[in-house]
């Protein structure tokens, strides 16, 4: 595998992302943020960034375990809370998830596993948006670039947020940023996992390491290389084809749904405004 991912200079990236979070809060008229804290590196990084941007007092980190969640995940989430001194709440999603899981059935065990995972992700979204209303805050997203490109996330679940601070950082670049922020070493060291079922790991589920996936994504997306060129550069042909197909197949997750154009001026088509503008700020 050649064509390495360029190293990221963490301090500069941090400066830009922290300014971005601050400006989003300022432009929307919110002073507070809510983040779902899983114990993994992505949400830990976002929590550290948010605390740096708006202060730990203005950050609510919500821990939302399910009965099968690993106890280590929660311990790691608490490490983040302790390190930051931010506010925290615990909402066990088991009583929300179980009745829904009792309602869905099917023969295909693999498909069921994905559907169950989606239910959990969406119940967590419901909790976060409810807490955001109660805490008068914006929900800050924890999706990264690798997930967004591969579509490795649940629409209206973990992908739902008001802003996405790490959405342009590949998973394998995140570690450098997280390290520079002071994210606890235990969190940096463990294998990434969505923790939707016991012993799940991202890399086992995706079938490749994040290093390999990110190198391919960087070549295909950032450098606009063709599949053929990636293969000629020494990347695994099967994996490159799988990644390219997955990026294409999940385009729908990265865009708002298309509107059938009927009128002269259509939202999102030719009624185009910046999200934040005069009149959009709360209390303006």
């Amino acid at each position: 595998m050649t064509a390495a991912l360029p190293e990221i200079d963490a301090p500069s990236a941090l400066e830009v992302i922290i300014a971005f979070i601050r400006s989003q809060a300022e432009q929307t008229g919110f002073r507070r943020l809510v983040v779902g804290l899983s114990g993994g590196v992505d949400s830990a990084t976002v929590a550290f960034l948010a605390a740096r941007a708006i202060g730990a007092d203005n950050l609510l980190a919500v821990r939302m375990p399910y009965r099968s969640s690993s106890p280590d995940s929660e311990a790691d989430a608490m490490r983040v809370v302790t390190a930051l001194g931010c506010r925290t709440e615990r909402v066990d999603i088991t009583p929300m998830v179980e009745p829904m899981l009792a309602l869905i059935g099917g023969d295909d065990e693999a498909a069921l596993r994905v559907r169950r995972g989606n239910v959990m992700a969406r119940e967590r979204m419901i909790v976060l948006y409810d807490r955001s209303a109660a805490f008068d805050a914006l929900v800050v997203g924890t999706s990264n670039k690798t997930e967004a490109l591969l579509g490795y996330g649940t629409l209206h679940g973990d992908m739902a947020s008001a802003l996405t601070p790490i959405g342009d950082l590949y998973k394998s670049q995140l570690r450098a940023v997280a390290g520079a922020l002071g994210v606890p070493a235990e969190i940096l060291a463990k294998p990434p996992s969505a923790d939707l079922w016991p012993d799940q790991t991202d890399e086992a589920e995706l079938g490749a390491s994040y290093d390999d996936l990110d190198r391919i994504l960087f070549a295909l997306v950032d450098r606009r290389w063709s599949v053929e060129r990636c293969v000629a550069a020494g990347m695994d042909a099967k994996l490159v084809a799988w990644v390219a197909e997955r990026v294409a197949r999940n385009e729908f997750k990265r865009q708002i749904p298309p509107v059938a154009k009927v009128s002269l001026r259509t939202p999102g088509v030719d009624h185009l405004y910046p999200r934040r503008r005069p009149g959009s700020r709360r209390g303006s």
């Binding site: 360029p6 190293e7 990221i8 200079d9 963490a10 301090p11 500069s12 990236a13 400066e15 830009v16 950032d222």
Partner: peptide, 10 residues
């Protein structure tokens, strides 16, 4: 606008 801040591309 900054691109790829902190990377060689930026």
């Amino acid at each position: 606008p900054a691109r790829a801040p902190g990377s060689s591309a930026g």
